[in-house]
């Protein structure tokens, strides 16, 4: 038997492997994605009836509906991404390996991001149709990406943290919503302005704050994730 050399693998390759594994499992199991899409569509439709959408307020209310949908979907995805691993103690398989703990964080972050994006690809066009809003504006797409990322950055960290606690499925949103408040608020605000066709001066404060929040949560995750791993 030839001895295989165990080199220290590069971080990007590990992140890629984690992403590939999550995606493949998901596409074969189809447990999560289909449910998420249906759930997100339901949210969009229910709000359509729950709120009286006049032309004048459609941009501001619509942006809120869009973000509530994304936040709910992302929370479910986070819970699921971590719960699936726990069922077979698969997270321990990751921790056993000589990989940077941060690579595991980024792998999970990107998996969650990819799942939410896949759902968004279906749901956002439907939303645009039902609410008659110009969601495809490049700036709005940038807000969608940055906002989703901004929610998942602390979300992934807190999901790893809640995974060890009792009642973790309920605990995650309780922990995450108040922390992610700046991201949600600035993303909603930025979307409102973009959808209403405002000039950049009116969009800029919320947009810049969104970028700043993303950077701060990224820095915190990089600094703190090691603390969540036992050894």
């Amino acid at each position: 038997m030839r001895a295989a050399m165990a080199r220290k693998p590069r971080m990007l390759r590990v992140i890629g492997a984690l992403l590939w594994k999550d995606l493949l499992s998901e596409l074969r199991g189809r447990a999560l994605l289909a449910a998420l899409v249906v759930f997100a569509l339901l949210t969009v439709v229910v709000f359509n009836y729950a709120l009286d959408l006049e032309r004048t307020v459609r941009a501001s209310v619509g942006a809120g509906v869009l973000w509530v949908t994304i936040v709910f979907t992302a929370t479910l995805a986070l819970n699921r991404v971590f719960a699936a691993e726990r069922e077979h103690a698969l997270h321990e398989g990751l921790l056993l390996a000589p990989v940077e703990r941060l690579a595991i964080y980024f792998g999970k972050l990107l998996s969650g991001f990819l799942f939410v994006l896949l759902v968004a690809v279906v749901v956002v066009p439907v939303f645009a149709l039902l609410y008659d809003l110009p969601v495809a504006r490049p700036l709005n797409l940038a807000v969608l990406l940055l906002g989703t990322l901004g929610y998942l950055l602390p979300g992934t960290l807190l999901a790893a943290l809640a995974a060890h606690a009792r009642a973790r499925e309920v605990l995650l949103p309780v922990l995450l919503f108040p922390v992610a408040m700046p991201v949600i608020l600035s993303a909603v605000r930025a979307s409102q302005e973009v959808l209403a066709g405002s000039a950049w001066v009116r969009i800029a404060p919320a947009f810049n704050l969104l970028v700043a929040s993303d950077i701060i949560f990224l820095a915190l995750a990089v600094l703190l994730f090691d603390q969540l791993v036992d050894a």
């Binding site: 050399m5 590990v14 590939w20 398989g93």
Partner: peptide
């Protein structure tokens, strides 16, 4: 390490499971 759980991904094939762990350990 072999623990109480197999730490194998049920939706991946035998080969894919090994391949995944090979990339974690940098096996070439």
């Amino acid at each position: 390490f072999v623990g109480h759980h197999t730490m194998l991904y049920p939706e991946l094939t035998a080969f894919e499971n090994l391949q995944f762990y090979a990339s974690l350990y940098g096996v070439e």
